[in-house]
Design a protein around this nucleic acid. Structure first.
Lengths: 277, 277
DNA sequence: AGCTCTTATGAATCATTGA
DNA sequence: GTCAATGATTCATAAGAGC
């Protein structure tokens, strides 16, 4: 199970323990990971499962782990962190903001904040806020030049294209560039026959309701999207807070080599059940 | 024009000048404003119009203005700030995060971060990121108990159903293969008999394309939503960076007393043209 | 009125060139 | 070398024109 032979790209490793300790112990070789995508235990949530981390000490808890992750990530690799701050005594807590700034201070580049717009969010009603329907997907890298396969996540264009491109008017080709600083009109011809467009930085996905047994299931489509975007086949994907193993299942299905680290023995067993056919 | 008599709830004041100076000068009485909703000039944008503020000095530029706003806001009032950090040399800049923390340090409560998911975002393509399709709507208050009229922004179930059906674009279907038509049908059935539902903290709106004369038009539906949510009829709404006056038009239409402050004389004139019938 | 088709344009970002 | 201006790239919406 511990073999990382590139020849078998569909192999998946599961390690049971604390990710910081295991990585420091050499379980994941330095620079060997192409993508880290994870949804760590939220502050003060999942108390029953993880023991809970208080919001005020969340940054202190996370930083050394991020340092370990930095070591094992390849220079052109990406780190995608799914997180959302909780509300504490009527306010949004600032630990996520502080975490971003501290991670930058320790060498990470904060390239982008993708937005996961949840189609079906958790129900509830409070006097001072509505249901929280979005989460942050923070994208960090080690370098300004990183691997990104934009073509692999293109989406079908809107129907507008069908009408738009049937008749190319003269204006399409002659849009005055002195007034509008974009040659968009000129290039419309290029679109004939094109079926797909690049997506935006908002992922509009539903949460997964089907899988029981772990409280924080994020939809498989989420890691899948980032795995397709930031890795090639045969690359290595790491989830240091594997939980129920959704990222690893996605990596396996996409023929990437998966490494999962999970501190809870029960979840480790659960992941193994999920991965092995 | 300067009368703030509550009797005339539809009156709208326009003041031309710097909001900080004008408020300090007493143009807006302390504690008289129920809602501040504004979209300030973004860092280093609108150079032609405002002179531009460098991202690195944005917090320093904004803080004293926020202090003035604090003074004129009622104790149970709300401050809604529409903002989004720009990308600087391959990274998202952190001035918005810093601003949130500094505002908290100076007495504001950061109650919530609403998300404006823009249906039509600016086009473009870059090697390291996709098009930016969302902006922040930061909600600050002076007190944990603030005025909130949740019922006033409930969405009719019928419209909701209609919109969902219409918005089921090809993109929706591809990104979320788990959403089957039968599953959707089930969900709709669940809502039969119920007339209205509470919204979430994500607003899914298009940007306004048509309005000329000001570079930063945000859709009228945006201030409208917050005005209905955080004020009653006859209350006072302030926009200290009025721009083209969209917030004031919304306030006027909803029978709120509007106060607009705008530093550019041309825009002041433009607002007056827009307000007066 | 309702439909189709046409057209303008929007808080952008990065790479390159020039001062 | 640092900084500022210019060029190249891209998509969905709404308003308007035409039928």
């Amino acid at each position: 199970m511990n073999s990382r032979a590139k020849s078998n790209t569909e192999s998946t490793e599961i390690h049971c323990g604390d990710c910081q300790q295991l990585i420091k112990a050499g379980v994941v070789p330095p620079g060997s990971v192409n993508l880290i995508v994870t949804s760590p235990p939220y502050a003060d949530q999942r108390k029953a499962n993880y023991g809970g981390v208080h919001p005020d000490s969340y940054v202190r808890w996370f930083l050394p782990k991020a340092e370990a992750l930095f070591e094992c990530l390849a220079d052109d690799g990406s780190f995608v962190l799914n997180i959302k701050e909780k509300a504490v005594s009527g306010e949004r807590h600032t630990y996520v903001l502080e975490l971003i700034m501290e991670l930058r201070r320790s060498g990470w580049l904060w390239v982008e904040e993708y937005c996961w717009h949840k189609k079906n969010c958790y129900p509830g009603k409070w006097p001072n806020r509505f249901r929280d329907s979005w989460e942050r997907l923070l994208h960090f890298t080690k370098s300004r030049k990183f691997k990104m396969r934009q073509d692999s996540v293109m989406v079908p264009m809107g129907d507008w294209r069908l009408n738009r491109l049937q008749n190319l008017s003269a204006t399409d080709r002659v849009r005055d560039p002195s007034r509008h600083r974009n040659g968009f009109g000129k290039k419309v011809e290029k679109w004939v026959g094109r079926e797909k467009a690049y997506p935006t930085n908002v992922l509009h996905l539903a949460t997964e309701c089907g899988f029981k047994g772990h409280p924080a299931t994020f939809p498989k489509a989420l890691p899948e999207w980032f795995i397709r975007l930031f890795t090639d086949e045969g690359d290595t994907v790491l989830d240091p807070f594997a939980g129920s193993g959704t990222t690893l299942v996605a990596a396996h299905d996409l023929k990437r080599h998966g490494i999962g680290i999970e501190i809870s023995p029960e979840y480790c067993d659960l992941i193994k059940d999920r991965i092995t056919p």
